[in-house]
Computed example of a mutant assay.
Amino acid sequence: MSEVNAVTPRTLAQAGALGIVVVFSMVAGGLITAQIVDDDDPSSTPLPQATEPIVSTTPEATSASVSQTEFAVLPDLPALVEQTIDSVVRIESVGPQGGQSVGTGIVLDTDGHILTNYHVIEGVSDIRVQLHDGSTGTAEVLGADPGSDLAVLRASIQPQRLVPATFGDSDAVRVGEPVFAIGNPFSQEFSTSAGVISAVDRTTNSSFTGRTIRNVLQTDAALNPGNSGGPLFNAVGEVIGVNTSIENPDGRSFAGLGFAVPSNTAMRFLPQMLAGDSVEHSQLGVTGVDVDTLLAEQLELSVEQGVYITTVVPGSAAHDAGLVAGGVSIGGEPGPGGDIVVAVDGEPVNSIEQLAAEIDRRNVGDTVELTVRRGGDELTLTASLAPWN
Rank of each mutant, 00 (worst) to 15 (best):
F180M: 07
I197W: 02
G251D: 04
V216I: 15
A266W: 06
V242F: 07
P225F: 09
G241M: 07
T166K: 09
Q188E: 06
G229Y: 09
A221N: 01
S156V: 13
F180I: 04
S170G: 04
V261F: 03
T192R: 06
P262L: 13
N224I: 08
S263D: 03
R202C: 09
V200K: 08
I240S: 00
F190M: 09
F180A: 09
D250M: 13
F167L: 13
G183W: 02
F259T: 02
R211P: 01
G226T: 01
V175R: 10
F269Q: 05
N215P: 00
S245A: 15
F269R: 07
V196W: 12
P185L: 04
T212N: 05
G237Y: 09
V173Y: 00
L232T: 04
S263C: 10
T244D: 12
T212D: 02
T192V: 15
L232M: 14
G210P: 01
N184S: 06
N184I: 05
G256A: 14
G226K: 00
E189N: 10
N248G: 15
E238H: 13
P185M: 06
R202H: 11
T166R: 11
G251Y: 06
A266D: 04
R174Q: 15
F208T: 13
P178I: 10
E177I: 05
S253Q: 13
A266G: 10
S263I: 12
P249K: 14
Q272Y: 14
G258E: 06
N234T: 12
V236G: 00
N215E: 11
V239I: 12
P164W: 08
S198P: 05
V196R: 11
T265C: 09
P271D: 11
A199S: 12
E247M: 15
P225K: 09
F254L: 04
A172L: 14
Q160K: 11
A255F: 05
A235G: 13
F233D: 00
I197L: 06
D171L: 01
V261Q: 03
S156D: 15
N205C: 05
I213C: 08
F259C: 10
V236H: 02
Q272I: 07
L270M: 14
N264P: 03
S187F: 05
P249L: 15
S245M: 15
N234F: 11
G258L: 03
P164K: 08
D250F: 14
P159D: 11
T265A: 13
Q160A: 15
A194I: 01
T209M: 07
